[in-house]
């Protein structure tokens, strides 16, 4: 008997044996589950809907009387809260202003070029794109001339990057919220981030302790490598993730 008890105390998730949680009318049958093709988004929706309904039931059973009040009164509640928040930020401003030295220095002298002259770090990627001159093609039809100047080429490269970022939401309208759900698009994202990093290194190529030609080649190779690795890893993780998700789901609501 004791053997039997211990078996029953653990819910069977493989569909065999009697489940501990009694299935009700809401629980889908195996057939219904098979017919479901929308996948994770549908599943999430069901979870949320169920939670909402439970909340609603709880509210209806409760003896708490809701008053017809839309918010807190401006005085004193809101005023005191707002004063506290603004005092905090004003205090932070004063504190920072007092602790940090003034940063205004002499005007730049165009007759002297500093040893390290670079834009702010968060613009390195864009600065790196301006240095794409080596891949500006020389067309034989123009007698070996470039169709556009290296400067224009670099600016257009920026436009291409912005365009690519803008177009991604139109290409992938999926509802995935985790990289593992769509390994391909996750790989594209990782490749993009890697490209931003490598073009940043191209921007500071003259200071980096690597040969500029190697830096330049790596700028295009590394994103591809990173994207490939990401794709492979996520594809592998997918199996385990799906298994985990299914296990949780069936533990909660075992099939009939």
């Amino acid at each position: 008997m004791s053997d039997n008890d211990s078996q029953q105390s653990e819910p069977a998730t493989d569909g065999s044996g009697p489940g501990i949680v009694a299935p009700d009318d809401e629980v889908p049958s195996w057939r219904e589950r098979k017919e479901r093709t929308t996948g994770l988004s549908r599943l999430t929706y069901e979870y949320f809907e169920r939670a909402r309904r439970e909340d609603q039931d709880l509210r209806q059973e409760s003896s708490y009387v809701e008053r017809d009040v839309l918010g807190f009164p401006a005085w004193p509640h809101e005023t005191i809260r707002n004063l506290a928040i603004s005092s905090f930020f004003i205090g932070m401003l004063l504190f920072l202003a007092a602790t940090m030295p003034p940063t205004l220095e002499d005007a730049a002298n165009p007759a002297v070029t500093p040893e390290i002259i670079l834009p702010d770090w968060y613009l390195y990627w864009s600065f790196g794109l301006l240095k794409l001159g080596p891949i500006n093609p020389e067309l034989s039809i123009l007698g070996g001339d470039k169709i556009m100047s290296d400067e224009l080429y670099g600016v257009l490269a920026n436009a291409v990057v912005f365009g690519a970022i803008a177009i991604v939401p139109f290409l992938n309208k999926g509802s995935a919220r985790r990289p593992v759900e769509q390994p391909f698009w996750a790989a594209i994202g990782v490749g993009g981030v890697m490209f931003a990093f490598t073009t940043s290194v191209v921007a500071v190529q003259n200071l980096a302790p690597i040969d500029p030609n190697i830096t330049f080649d790596l700028a295009f190779l590394l994103p591809l490598v990173a994207a490939t690795i990401t794709y492979a890893v996520l594809k592998t993780m997918r199996e385990g993730y799906m298994y985990d998700l299914n296990r949780r789901y069936y533990r909660l609501r075992p099939p009939r």
């Binding site: 165009p110 007759a111 002297v112 070029t113 040893e115 003259n206 200071l207 040969d211 500029p212």
Partner: peptide, 13 residues
């Protein structure tokens, strides 16, 4: 800018 002759060792890159 004001370039340099034999000024920065990074020039050897």
């Amino acid at each position: 800018c004001v370039p340099g002759y034999k000024k920065l060792s990074e020039a050897s890159n």
